[in-house]
Each structure stands twice: as structure tokens, then as C-alpha cells.
């Protein structure tokens, strides 16, 4: 007996993501899903960006890692609420993991939720968490070839952040090639160039995030 299904394999994840998105929309919370390889500087970027957000932006963070609570502890030191999810080997966060921790997050006191995904440029790209926007972070030490090697995430991400630009003089990162490749893969992507360490270039990114939060709150 043959049974025709034509069913989306990710339908269970997508259904939960849609529920998450409904909750975020009802509460006017703008949600960013940050994706990068390990060591690109996602957590450092958040440590620097979150305290500089304008006072009307009220953030909270979900940290995804295989193990340890190191990243959530780092975020908490900035005074921002942070919750750690340990995937215990899982290479990405899925919508159900987010759904299960939502009740522990003070959703009525925030308007920005940043989800720092597990460090990985491949798997997290396929799993919708209910976010408004994916942000991919790449550091110059990883090389300019990454958009071509991992095109799915660079296409999915509405925003890219190139980090560690203070090291550009010390590495063979071809900025022109990087921009050309991104233009081919995702011509509409908003691009930022920063050094989280020296704080160069952070201001435009901070203003961009603040505007996104405000427009969701105002225009929803």
C-alpha cells in the first residue's frame, strides 16, 4: 500500500515557530536569531551592544550552547536578563526549545528578545524559531570565503555583521570579494562592519536594532 503525503518534514517545527511568533507579535517583542560559527564573537557583540541600546529598548537574551552557562553569565553581568538553553549535543536550537522556556522570560517587561543560536553556520539556518530576523555574524579571521561556502544562512539572514574589523590589517580577508559574494547571494541584506572589541562601527548597528524594535511596537 502506498500513501501519498507531500508533507513538509519540518511542519512540526514550523507549527511551533508560528505559535512562538504569535506570542511575540501579541506582546510586540522584536526577535533576532543570531547565527555564526563558534568564536565569531556573538556573545562579545551582545555584551557591547546591549548596554548601549537606548533606554526605551528593553532586551532579554536566550543563549544556546551544547553545554555550560558561561554565555548567559556573561550577559547577566551587563544587567540584561539571560536564560541558558543547553542542547546537550544538539547542533541547533529548534522552535520547541524556545517554546519551552518562554514562561521563564519576563515577556511583559521586554520589547527585544535576542536568541543566540548554537555556534554553527549550517544547521541553525533550517530551523525557524519564530524570529522576526536572522542576523549572521562573521569574523574576519574566518576568511572571506564563508558566504560562498555557507550560502543558505547568508541568504536567509536579513542582516550580516562582519566582526573583528580591527584585525583586517593582520589577516588576508578580501573585503571586496566578501561584498561581491554577498551581493550575489543576498543583494537586499543590510550589512554592518564592526569590532566588538574596540567598539568601532557599533553605533549604526545599535540604531538599526532600536529602529526595528520601535517600528514593530509602533506599526504592528
Amino acid at each position: 500500500m502506498q500513501v501519498q503525503l507531500t508533507t513538509n518534514i519540518l511542519k512540526a517545527n514550523d507549527a511551533i515557530a508560528a505559535l512562538n511568533r504569535k506570542i511575540f507579535n501579541e506582546k510586540n517583542i522584536f526577535v533576532i536569531n543570531i547565527i555564526s560559527s563558534p568564536g565569531a564573537g556573538k556573545t562579545t557583540l551582545l555584551e557591547k551592544v546591549l548596554p548601549k541600546l537606548p533606554p526605551d529598548i528593553k532586551p532579554a537574551v536566550i543563549e544556546g550552547d551544547l553545554t555550560t552557562t558561561k554565555d548567559a553569565e556573561r550577559i547577566e553581568k551587563t544587567g540584561v536578563f539571560a536564560l541558558q538553553i543547553n542542547t546537550l549535543g544538539g547542533c541547533h536550537l529548534d522552535a520547541n526549545m524556545i517554546s519551552q522556556v518562554l514562561e521563564k522570560i519576563p515577556l511583559d517587561e521586554i520589547n527585544l528578545l535576542v536568541i543566540e543560536n548554537v555556534g554553527n553556520l549550517v544547521c541553525p539556518a533550517g530551523f525557524d524559531l519564530g524570529e522576526d530576523m536572522k542576523m549572521v555574524v562573521l569574523s574576519v579571521t574566518e576568511g572571506n570565503d564563508k558566504p560562498l561556502k555557507y550560502p543558505v544562512i547568508f541568504r536567509e539572514a536579513a542582516v550580516s555583521v562582519l566582526n573583528k574589523i580591527d584585525l583586517l590589517n593582520y589577516v588576508d580577508f578580501d573585503l571586496k570579494q566578501y561584498e561581491d559574494d554577498l551581493q550575489a547571494i543576498n543583494p537586499n541584506q543590510q550589512r554592518f562592519y564592526v569590532s566588538a572589541r574596540t567598539e568601532e562601527g557599533l553605533e549604526p548597528l545599535i540604531m538599526f536594532i532600536a529602529e526595528k524594535v520601535r517600528s514593530k511596537r509602533g506599526g504592528a
Binding site: Q2, T6, I9
Partner: peptide, 9 residues
């Protein structure tokens, strides 16, 4: 797309 087209059993 990631689809289950059909199955047999």
C-alpha cells in the same frame, strides 16, 4: 523544500 513525497507499507 524538504518533503515526504509518499511511503509504502
Amino acid at each position: 523544500e524538504l518533503l515526504i513525497d509518499y511511503y509504502e507499507g
